[in-house]
Design a protein around this nucleic acid. Structure first.
Length: 496
RNA sequence: GCACGGAUGUCAGAGCGGUUAUGAGCGGGAUUGCAGAUCCUGAGACCGGAGUUCGAAUCUCCGUCCGUGCUCCA
């Protein structure tokens, strides 16, 4: 099946092609590590994690590079505000980044370059751009001259160069800037007091923001590469600046073959921002909900659509996730043999309903792949998984099924779920974890004896159909904060 | 103002020219003493207007409304 992706530059879904057969080079703009990660970061790197996983599932050898911006105005500001020196601040936030992403089951990229390790490269590229008359030196730095390559303007946002010129009007307040034109952007910033600096042919200073991604992607991928990703907001000016730099430096176009941008996260219908006070850090959310539930909630929308995060969405995700998990555990337990290999479809012929069910599951698997091939439509893929879950639950609970067939079916079901929900969507725990008894809550241990005694009494009452007494005991347990669930294997209980 | 993207049932959210999206919620039913879980099943939708077409939620045009970008931002 052919993978199609929405390319921001071409503004439509296009056939996915690679420079080298079977290999994908992917660069995604990473975080500026001045603070901990928030929900928006989670959504971004989760989007590209899904893309990463699907490309690998399709057999591509993916080289995934994601940078850290470890020097910029906000980092300097935070450090100067007494948050320790900037290097310590940066290291701490990078550590925190890994913790958050690991919790969300986001696979690591192949390389995480830091921009301060690439200052030499940035200087070299800047020098080259000056020599090619695309950049100029002033008192406060080096600037890229946008009018030197006007045809490259607006490639990602469709803005015309004239419109931006007139539209910016009074908003341009470059106090003291020596730019020739307000559209120009900094390649190198001359040193200011109390700032970390690096040496350059233009004196001490530090690199501009846009040039770092050009330097780091060039270093890892040479001249051109397959996918460049990032948040929707980076299209302009950051990514368009990269087009200017990369293409003018290499003299080659396009440098990036597919531009992919993920949509934003809103909170209760409003844009998430610090000024509105609705800023959710990943850590804050994970104190309230399971990381897998958050992951489920975020992949339950197409990566390009905006997503409105709220309580209801998380509750919805939790229910669906628990259904998936419950089904997975049931399927795991339904395997009576330890054969690691699922029996092929053809071997299950003794039971017509099972054969039919398997046929449906095969179709679901194909539908899943079709959804992911259609611009990584994880929402549609999740829908397929949920239908699969229903089908598996139904068949597993069906009567009159031959034991050996049920076993084979369970193996098939487990494999299918692990391949789709597990390997690709990343929302299944390991088999061991799924089957493990939940850790004993000390609060439960404390009341366990009392609860068990009451349950024994209730079971006796139920056996003599003394429902009044049985329900009274259940009410008593409810009052203790205990929820009782009757199952064919006897009553189970948990804290509410 | 310019640019880009949207408007689908109660809600969330797919579909991108003909086929049940899916989930929650709501209505019926099976199972269970009841509850829960699970399964079956029902109702309910394509912003407004015009056009193209045998056929449009899907394409074109007009209108209305919303979001985002144009400044550091995933």
């Amino acid at each position: 099946m052919a993978l199609r992706v929405h390319d921001t530059r071409r503004r439509e879904k296009v056939d996915f092609t690679t420079l080298e057969p079977g290999k994908v080079s992917m660069y995604v703009c990473g975080v500026t590590v001045y603070d901990r990660c928030h929900l928006g970061h989670a959504r971004c790197y989760l989007s590209f994690d899904l893309i990463h996983r699907w490309l690998e599932a399709k057999g591509y050898d993916v080289m995934y590079v994601q940078n850290f911006t470890d020097i910029d105005d906000k980092i300097i500001q935070r450090a100067n505000e007494g948050d320790g020196d900037w290097k310590t601040l940066v290291d701490r936030n990078i550590e925190s980044y890994y913790e958050d992403m690991d919790a969300l089951n986001i696979l690591r990229a192949d390389a995480y370059p830091r921009c301060t390790d690439y200052v030499d490269d940035m200087v070299r590229i800047t020098q080259d751009l000056i020599e090619k008359n695309h950049a100029y030196v002033t008192d406060d730095g080096v600037y890229f001259h946008v009018e030197s390559a006007p045809e490259k303007f607006g490639q990602l946002t469709g803005q015309s160069i004239d419109a931006v010129q007139s539209g910016a009007g009074g908003r341009v307040s470059d106090t003291g800037s020596t730019k020739r034109d307000h559209k120009d952007f900094a390649l190198w910033k001359a040193a200011k007091p109390d700032e970390p600096t690096w040496d350059s042919p233009w004196g001490p200073g530090r690199p501009g923001w846009h040039i770092e991604c050009t330097a780091m992607s060039m270093d890892h991928f040479d001249r051109e590469f397959d996918i460049h990703g990032g948040g929707h907001d980076l299209r302009f000016p950051h990514h368009e600046a990269e087009i200017f730099q990369g293409e003018c430096h290499t003299g080659h176009s396009p440098v990036v073959h597919h531009w992919l941008h993920n949509g934003f996260v809103n909170i209760d219908g409003e844009k998430m921002s610090k000024s509105l006070g609705n800023f959710w850090s990943i850590r804050d959310i994970l104190e309230k909900v399971d990381a897998m539930v958050l992951r489920f909630a975020l992949i339950n929308a197409h990566y390009r659509s905006p997503i409105d995060m709220n309580e209801a969405l998380l509750n919805d995700a939790e229910r669906n996730y628990n259904r998936l998990l419950g089904c997975y555990v049931d399927a795991l337990k339904a395997r009576t043999t330890t054969s690691p290999v699922a029996l092929p479809h053809a071997d299950i012929t003794s039971s017509v309903p099972l054969g039919k069910s398997l046929g449906l599951l095969e179709k679901m698997g194909e539908g899943f792949a079709r959804a992911m091939d259609d611009d990584f439509n994880s929402r549609e893929a999740v829908a397929k998984v949920l239908v699969t879950v229903r089908e598996i639950s139904k068949t597993l609970n069906a009567d009159g099924v031959d034991e050996a067939d049920r076993d084979a079916f369970a193996h098939y079901a487990v494999d299918l779920l692990e391949e789709t929900a597990g390997r690709v969507l990343g929302v299944l725990p390991s088999r061991e974890l799924a089957l493990a008894e939940p850790e004993e809550d000390p609060r439960k241990v404390e009341i366990a004896d009392h609860v068990e005694a009451l349950l024994v009494e209730r079971t006796q009452a139920r056996s003599t159909k003394d429902w009044v007494r049985a329900d009274a005991i259940r009410d008593e347990l409810n009052a203790l904060g205990v929820v009782v669930t009757d199952t064919p294997q006897g009553p189970e209980w948990d804290l509410a």
